[in-house]
Design a protein around this nucleic acid. Structure first.
Lengths: 192, 192
DNA sequence: CCACCTCATGTTAGTGACTAACATCTAGTC
DNA sequence: GACTAGATGTTAGTCACTAACATGAGGTGG
């Protein structure tokens, strides 16, 4: 069963866009070129991706994240709950997305404007997590702050991960980043 | 001594832009209209503000922040140091900027794209703070994560502050936001 | 008071992201 | 082999932003 025409076109556009971005740079690549390389018109590009940026930033995992956050025991600190939910989410996401995600993040990490866009794009996810926390009785203001901090930390770590191709699994990097917030700060790892 | 022509034009543009944004919305306002309202050409607008967004997001305080961060005792946790530096910085910034800043943030808080832009704009400040921390011997990765988390939390709190005009001083809001990260989570405020 | 020099500004023309409206074409259905 | 819905094409336009060159106003030195 071949994927629907819509999905195939979208995949061709994504592939063409990543190729061109990597080869000639994001800014030097026009949406026209991407469309042409995928064999469609510019209009079709914009029907599949609302903006040029959106090729690099997509985040269909909000509902799962929110669920996982809500499932954490409510008596633990907010950031700890978010931390644990993220780690659980990564176990699911990593095997599927790791390849394409790294390409996208690596491209985005190079341009300040795109780094920002990537961070900005997490806002929906942030809202979802915040909502999940508030539903368990958390103070709304604190929940929002905790969520934004956690996403910022994760996003920052993600870009560092994509930039040094030195490796380390996605999970490891994110876990390390979040543990800075949870309060375990030590250059190496000994426990008092 | 009257301010230079450059500064006067910039001030007129800023005022005209805020007025129009508040009255007819950010997206519905074109840079042409802003320029016309300030009595200059569109070209002149872009000479004073590199982008339309930049009217709402400006951040000349990076150097001070970095200095204050560097001045914190190096044996304290990263986030605690950032927290203290922010509080000290606000004592200086608040009296000067509070009025215009609130207008700008209030406008930006309404549009998701602008909320993102505002968060994204803190990246230079983040870099500055990260650098200051690393200079004191902190682990670069941890420093970056801590800085991004702190700025995200602050930015989020800022937007909440500008949105509910219910008041509370800028310092209070930011302090509360950061204390979520420092690990003092309590709905209200009693101290153990 | 005039020539002069420097910048802020104006003008024009262009690129590129994105949108609206309407025409067309393709994939599966009956 | 028509039939219909959704994917695509075409065209024309708006708006943010840029490059090139022309003009204008301000203060300075003579």
């Amino acid at each position: 069963m071949a994927p629907s025409r819509t999905l195939r076109t979208r995949a061709r556009l994504l592939e063409a866009a990543l190729d061109l971005f990597e080869r000639q740079g994001y800014e030097a690549t026009t949406t026209q070129q991407v469309a042409a390389a995928a064999g469609v018109s510019q209009m079709t590009f914009f029907r599949h991706f609302p903006t040029k940026e959106s090729v690099l930033v997509s985040d269909p995992y909000d509902p799962m994240l929110a669920e996982l956050v809500a499932a954490q025991p409510a008596d633990r600190p907010l950031i700890r709950r978010i931390h644990d939910a993220f780690v659980q989410a990564l176990a699911v996401i990593e095997p599927v997305e790791s390849a394409s995600a790294r390409r996208r993040v690596a491209i985005a990490a190079q341009l300040p404007a795109l780094r920002g866009a990537l961070l900005a794009a997490t806002q929906e996810s942030e809202a979802a997590v915040t909502h999940a926390l508030v539903a368990t009785g958390a103070d709304p203001r604190q929940a929002r702050v905790a969520a934004s901090a956690a996403f910022a930390a994760t996003g920052t770590a993600l870009m560092a991960w994509a930039a040094d191709s030195s490796g380390g699994s996605l999970s490891d990097v994110v876990t390390q980043a979040l543990s800075v917030l949870v309060g375990e700060e030590r250059p190496s790892g000994e426990r008092p």
